[in-house]
Design a protein around this nucleic acid. Structure first.
Lengths: 201, 201
DNA sequence: GTGCCGTTTGTCACCGAGTGTCACGATTAA
DNA sequence: TTAATCGTGACACTCGGTGACAAACGGCAC
C-alpha cells in the first residue's frame, strides 16, 4: 500500500475521471460524450486520460478487474468439502446481496450499458472472463481428463448464460424482485435439468 | 428478385470485397489490414466500401444475417407436436452437420476470430442475437406469464452458453470430434441436469 | 534547502475507422 | 430519347487510440 503524494494524486485523478464521465454520460449519453470533454472536465490532457484508462469503455466498468479478482479468491478459498453447486449457490447468494445493496447504482449503469453496442460488447467480454475463471475452477474440481474438461466447459457456459439471463430479467423488473431467489431457481434448473420444468406445467 | 445490371454488379462487388478481405486477412492478419487496402484490391474507393459493409467486422461474418433468418424460419416451421428439447436436438443435428461439412472453412474463420478482440466481441454479439431469437421461440412455447418468460430466458441463456462452450471445445480439437454427439451430450446436461453428472462421476 | 533520478504529464503528430456532402456518371423506366 | 434514380468517387471531417519527446513534478539523499 504505497501512500505517497504521487499515489494519492493518481487515485484522485482516477476518481475525478470516473465522476466526470458519469456526469457527462448521464447528461448527454455515452456515445455523444467525447474523451476530450471528459478530460477537460477532470482538468487533464487528452493524452493523460489514456494513461488512466486504456479505452473509453473502461470508464463504465472501473472496478471490474478487482471484482473478478475477488471472485477468483472466493473460488479458491471455498470450503473444500463443498460440491461445485454448493459453492455456486453460496457465491450466488453473496453476489445477489451485493447487487441488491447497490441496486440503484447498478440499474443506472445497466441503462447506460444498454444504450451502446460498444458497452454491451464489453459486458459480454467480461462475462467471458468470468466464464473462463469458473471453468478453471470446475476443471480443477472435476479431476483431469479431456472428458471432465469438456463437462467443466459446458457447465461454466451454462452457468454464466443462466446468470446473465437472470440478471437481465432482474434488470427488466427494475430490481424489484428477490435476486437471490431468482438466482437459486436458475441454479435449480441447471442442477435438476430443464426437462421436468419446461415441457409440462 | 430484381436482376438488372445494377444488382448483378453489386453482388459482384460484394463478393470481390469478401474475397479481397479474406486474402489480405490471411496474409497479414485482421488488424494489420486496413480498409483502404481491401478497397484498393477490390478496385473501389474507400468511401464505397462502407456502402457495402457498415464495419470492417462485417467482412468476417458476411452471411450472418441470412443464417439467423434461416434459424428463425426453422424455429417457426418446426413440427408443432415437438417439445422444445426435441426441436433443439433436431436443430443441433442440422447445424452440426452443416458445421462438419464446412469444417475447414469454419476452422479458418475461427482462427481469424480468435486473433482479434473486435471479432470476438462481434461473435458474442451474434450469439446474443441467437439467444434472443431462441428466447422468443421458447417464450411462445411456454405460454404467457412472467414466470414462463423467466424460464424461457434462463433456458435460452443456458442453451446458447452450452452451445458456445461445445463449439469452443470442438474448435480446440481441430474439428476432429463428432460435433453432433458433443452437442447432444451438452443438451443431455441441460435436460437432465448437471447434478448427477458433475459431482460424482 | 539543493541536487539528482525516475515517473508523470502535456504537446504534437500521426493512424485508422466511420460519416456527411456533393457532383458526376451510369442505369433504368417512361 | 429523355428524365428520374441510383451508385460512385472525392473531399473534408470527427473521434478513439498510439508513439515520441521534452518539461514538470514527486521522492530521496545529502
Amino acid at each position: 500500500m504505497p501512500s505517497g503524494l504521487r499515489e494519492q494524486k493518481k487515485a484522485e485523478t482516477r476518481a475525478a475521471l470516473v465522476k466526470a464521465a458519469q456526469d457527462l454520460f448521464r447528461k448527454q449519453g455515452y456515445e455523444a460524450t467525447t474523451i476530450e470533454e471528459i478530460a477537460e472536465l477532470a482538468s487533464i490532457s487528452r493524452r493523460t486520460f489514456f494513461r488512466y484508462f486504456p479505452t473509453k469503455e473502461d470508464l463504465v466498468f472501473p472496478q471490474q478487474e478487482s471484482r473478478l479478482q475477488g471472485f477468483m479468491m472466493l473460488l479458491e478459498t471455498h470450503r473444500p468439502e463443498e460440491t461445485p453447486f454448493e459453492t455456486l449457490r453460496n457465491l450466488t447468494a453473496l453476489f445477489a446481496a451485493d447487487y441488491t445493496r447497490h441496486a440503484e447504482r447498478i440499474l443506472v449503469q445497466q441503462e447506460l450499458i444498454l444504450s451502446s453496442p460498444d458497452l454491451l460488447a464489453r459486458e459480454r467480454e467480461i462475462d467471458r472472463a468470468w466464464e473462463a475463471t469458473m471453468f478453471e475452477y470446475l476443471a480443477k474440481w472435476g479431476g483431469g481428463g479431456r472428458e471432465a474438461e469438456h463437462r467443466a466447459r459446458v457447465l461454466a457456459g451454462a452457468a454464466i448464460g443462466v446468470i446473465r439471463a437472470t440478471l437481465r430479467y432482474w434488470f427488466s423488473t427494475g430490481g424489484t424482485e428477490d435476486l437471490n431467489q431468482l438466482g437459486q431457481e436458475a441454479l435449480d434448473f441447471l442442477e435438476q435439468g430443464f426437462r421436468k420444468i419446461v415441457p409440462m406445467d
